[in-house]
Design a protein around this nucleic acid. Structure first.
Length: 716
RNA sequence: GGGCGGUUAGCUCAGUUGGUAGAGCGUUCCCUUGACGUGGGAAAGGUCACAGGUUCGAAUCCUGUACCGCCCACCA
């Protein structure tokens, strides 16, 4: 017996070396598997595209969870002889990374504003690339058996090329437009954001009622009211029947007398306050819609930095907070303040990164018309072209797509894929221009310049499955698309999953994946969300150094149902560290028995031993079914149970008598049985706990393959 | 405002197609020489939130209630 078994299993000693053997073998690459005869060239393909981790920091527990889930699926498929591809990537993560980098700049007393875009881009690129290799190292340490030879970065030429083509195709198909529309503007980050990139905070803020000529209007935002010269009410509101649409009314307002115009529009809700409102189209989407319907003027009141513009008169240059109080004071002095409701509760949109209030602003942006894309995706789901394994997520998915709105895909940041377009310096019209050939604006004759904006990262990420596989004519695309399963975090179901489905169908005519497995959030042991500010973040690399990667993987997997959040408890991980050691000692026992009694794999089996082996084979059937039905947690638990509480606690204990007895035939039969049962268990356990099982495999006296990683799965 | 979940042992959670409940940790007791003390054996502990219903039978299906949570959302 190998002398390494004289000590307890030490993950730290074996993991790095084991991973190197795997990687050097080339078997992560399905082409190598075919070349070396491990996989048949006509074998059924199995493919998983890895959600590319952001190359802007360390891996977190959620990454460890996805690596575990995807690696289990991948390793099982590979051992089953399928042509198995797990495609890795790294995400430049546009806005996310730029925010991370801006924080770094701030620490150094610098700011992105005032930097040359080119210089900023170069700095972020260097930063990202160095993080990228760090992140790849961490994926390796988690045991990810992905094909590194294919790895793709989201800014690689191939990606940019395809993304630009999609942009052009959307334009050709009339699904793209550039328009002045209300966007979510973050005054800190100086960019527009998609709806999904805003969060909503409930606030209790004063709600003011002002006298506006003969009307009383209510608002929580007095600072936007300077330009309000339209007063809107519902056409059927009998209280205001005496006023007619278009009627002019002179009245005293914040900075003196103005003339207001009556607008009858269904946007006026008779149930709300007095049923009368004034509108600020530049800073409210609803108001903008009203203005558009009636072709009304609109004017910017608040600048891009969140300060009041000259239209505010004496309040010019003030911040919103400062101006709000002073305006109310002034209106009160003028006798126009009717009352203040201090119990008013409402929600305000905030930037998901900095929590600053979003200022709705009108801005020329690129938008994608989503409805046709969404309808096609919904049809694909209804027709069963793909399925979402968790029912609740399928409902959520359907609900979101049913009410989808157009998508603002342009961002005012440098870190991202440039939008291949020209915009008119004079009238802001935009032209899709992949070949950089447009020189004048057809609308106004003005000069056009390169659009400085970049794409929302998700615009490119949404195309990841077919981009990675080399759409339209790459071999991988032909072999592996649509992919078998998309495994990713449930919280990006809209950001990513929905977009992949829509884009996949749009560009390739096929869904990008057959099954969608969504995992929940990894929380701390008390169920609290991990966050840097709370200081409860557990780095997976630390856990795996302390307990071993196999233990970490089992701890993340078992007891975790698809789609639900889980808590990461070190005590639980430790239990699986013990399990790794248990497997180690079981192997030691079996190898001792082999050394003592000799191993004859052709020796006739006792009836009892046949039964024992059939028991393990039944386990193999169970585990295989569970894995194929994506019940990985159950598979893991069954293995744990069988190996420890049946095989170790009972079978090995009972075997001691036989092994110590003097019936050589019984002994030989039992040793063969134990050995074969061990082999099966190692194989079954390998996808879950790859390191310890491979380490043991390497010490087996008789084994069918050099590497357990490509051994034959014990059940077809 | 709309949508989706959860409520099972002291704690954190499983429970695959309905057949009177399981894991890890914790607690109590016992076991020190040959696989493993990172161990072995045993035990305590649950009216499966509540109320109805379907069923021979419900933690599991249906309806309602209570509490907790998550997501989406431009209501002045």
């Amino acid at each position: 017996m190998h002398e390494k078994f004289l000590k307890p299993y030490n993950p730290e000693e074996s993991e790095k070396a084991i991973y190197k053997i795997w990687e050097d073998s080339g078997f992560f690459n399905p082409d190598v598997c075919v070349e070396k005869g491990v996989t048949r060239s006509d074998a059924e393909p199995f493919s998983v595209i890895m959600p590319p981790p952001n190359a802007n920091g360390s891996l977190h527990a959620g990454h460890a969870l996805f690596v575990t889930l995807q690696d289990v699926m991948t390793r099982v498929a590979r051992m089953q002889g399928k042509r198995t591809l797990w495609f890795p990537g790294a995400d430049h993560a546009g806005f996310e990374t730029q925010v991370v980098y801006e924080k770094k700049l701030q620490k150094e007393g610098r700011s992105r504003f005032g930097m040359e875009p080119k210089d900023l881009y170069k700095e972020i690129l260097d930063f990202t690339l160095s993080n990228k290799s760090f992140m790849e190292g961490q994926l390796r340490s988690l045991g990810a058996s992905c094909d590194w030879s294919r790895e793709l970065f989201t800014l690689d030429e191939r990606v940019v090329h395809t993304v630009h083509d999609t942009f052009k195709k959307l334009d050709d198909d009339g699904l793209l437009y550039r328009g002045a529309r209300t966007v979510n503007w973050c005054p800190k980050h100086q960019t527009s954001l998609s709806n999904l990139e805003t969060e909503h905070e409930e606030r209790t803020e004063p709600f003011y009622y002002f006298q506006y000529g003969p009307f009383v209007i209510g608002t929580s935002r007095p600072e936007t009211k300077f330009g309000d010269k339209y007063v809107v009410m519902h056409p059927d509101d009998t209280r205001y029947a005496e006023y007619t649409h278009g009627q002019k009314i002179d009245l005293e307002w914040i900075n003196g007398p103005i003339t207001a115009t009556v607008i009858k529009d269904v946007a006026g809700d008779p149930e709300m306050g007095s049923g009368v409102m004034t509108i600020t189209p530049w800073h409210s989407g609803i108001d903008f819609e009203v203005a558009k319907r009636h072709n009304l003027d609109y004017e910017q009141i608040i600048n891009w930095q969140g300060k009041l513009l000259p239209i505010a008169g004496e309040f010019e240059g003030m911040s919103i907070k400062e101006a709000r109080e002073k305006i109310v004071e002034k209106l009160e002095k003028k006798g126009l303040l009717v009352k203040i409701d201090t119990t008013y509760k409402h929600t305000v949109p905030v930037c998901y990164k900095c929590a600053r209030e979003i200022e709705p602003q009108i801005r020329q942006q690129w938008f994608v018309t989503m409805k046709p894309l969404a309808d096609r995706a919904l049809k694909a789901l209804a027709d069963g072209e793909f399925r979402i394994l968790t029912e609740q997520h399928e409902k959520i998915f359907r609900h979101w797509l049913t009410g989808i709105e157009d998508w603002n895909i342009s961002r005012q940041i440098v870190w991202g894929i440039p939008i291949p377009a020209k915009i008119c310096a004079k009238c802001d019209a935009g032209y899709v221009d992949l070949t950089n050939s447009i020189v004048t604006c057809t609308a106004c004759g003005g000069e056009v310049v390169k659009d400085p904006d970049t794409f929302d990262t998700w615009f490119s990420s949404g195309q990841w499955p077919y981009v990675t596989l080399g759409f339209p004519d790459g071999d991988d695309f032909k072999t592996y698309y649509p992919t078998t399963v998309m495994e990713t975090a449930a919280d990006i179901i809209f950001f990513w999953v929905a977009r992949m489905v829509m884009f996949g169908l749009y560009r390739t005519g096929k869904v990008p994946f057959r099954d969608v497995y969504l995992h929940g959030l990894v929380r701390d042991k008390h169920g609290k969300k991990m966050s840097k500010s709370k200081g409860n973040v557990t780095a997976p690399t630390e856990i795996s150094e302390k307990y071993g990667t196999d233990a970490l993987r089992m701890g993340l997997l078992i007891g975790n149902t698809a789609g639900t959040d889980m808590n990461l408890d070190p005590d639980k991980i430790n239990a699986y560290k013990k399990f790794a050691n248990k497997i180690w000692n079981i192997s030691r026992f079996v190898l001792n028995a082999v050394a003592d009694a000799g191993l004859d794999l052709t020796h006739a089996l006792q009836k009892e031993d046949t039964i024992l082996l059939s028991e393990v084979q039944e386990l193999a059937r169970d585990v295989t079914t569970d894995v194929e039905k994506y019940r990985l947690y159950i598979a893991g638990e069954k293995l744990y149970h069988y190996t420890w509480h049946r095989f170790a606690d009972e079978v090995l204990e009972e075997s001691k008598q036989i092994l110590q007895g003097d019936d050589e035939s019984l002994k030989k039969s039992r040793v063969r049985t134990l050995y074969e049962a061990l082999i099966i268990q190692l194989k079954l356990l390998h996808p879950f706990m790859p390191f310890v099982t491979e380490e043991i495999w390497q010490a087996l006296p008789e084994r069918e393959t050099g590497l357990l990683m490509v051994a034959k799965w014990p059940k077809e």
